[in-house]
Amino acid sequence: MPHTLSRVLLTVVLLPLLIPTLGVFRADTPTQLSPQNMPSDTAHFPRSFGLGRAATPDEIKKLDIDVRPDGKGLPTGSGISTKGKSIFEAKCTPCHGVGGVGGPNGSLVTSVPAAGKRSERTIGNYWPYATTIFDYVRRAMPFNAPGSLTNEEVYHLTAYLLHANKIIDETTVIDATSLPKVVMPAQKSFIPDDRKGGPEIK
């Protein structure tokens, strides 16, 4: 009898106290647990569930289309504004306007605002990184035929949009080396979120 009692005491009183301090919950611990004193839900996880399959380098390469500001992800190829202009006129002006100004789906090129109006947010006055143009146009444009442009076309269009926004010269060649070096006028305005709750309105 006293022996049983002490076991009960151990499991009921001590175990719940011990569990939070145990780094690893062992599966053979007596099961006197209630939903309230369960160890953290990962404590009894195996090292691996063995689910999923290894991704092959080829399939990663096919899906990994993102481009970072440091140029990571940019493909080979190059582009120039004059060629980008003719692609833009063929594929983009119906929605973004002649010269990238005033189309039904928004201007891409900075222009002088109409009297009394604020200037539209565009690549030239609002985008902090030039690499984003390549990344976004390749993944999502033209809206009616997403993903249809070749890397070469995207480089030309990127060069065109940068030149039309007066950020590069007409003759600047845009490629994996030059694009990350383009400094965008808006970059200096960007600040990370500094709201943190509490009484202050930010």
Binding site: V67, R68, P69, I123, W127, P128, Y129, T132, Y136
Partner: peptide, 9 residues
């Protein structure tokens, strides 16, 4: 970060 269009423009 990647600075995608959805976190810049």
């Amino acid at each position: 970060p990647f600075m995608t269009r959805e976190e810049t423009s």
